[in-house]
Amino acid sequence: MTRHHRYPAFDLVKAEVPDDLCPVATDMSPMLPGDWRSMRPVVDRDKCVKCAVCWLYCPVQCVQEHAAWFDFNLATCKGCGICANECPQRAITMVEEAK
């Protein structure tokens, strides 16, 4: 079972959905909750061993893999701090967002 690709977006015209059916939402919600954040996760790259525990427990799934460490997509990270609490190597610290 491999699904290592992105899925094509649903196309109303191709799928022959009648336009008088009912309201059908096809646009992705544009909300990015990164601006809720008061604390930001910062990874110590020297300490990161790429165990993916942060990815596993990140509710937003905003963890992104880099060649030698894991980092966060700050557009969606809400700053909950679960990653910093769970990191087995304590490589993540939460720092206050500057004003």
Partner: peptide, 21 residues
């Protein structure tokens, strides 16, 4: 890890929401 997340990148769950995870 590289399968597509089938929810939008931004959902309005509370910070640290277990349900969203």
């Amino acid at each position: 890890g590289d399968w597509e997340d089938l929810f939008a990148p931004g959902l309005a769950g509370c910070q640290g929401c277990n349900t969203e995870l």
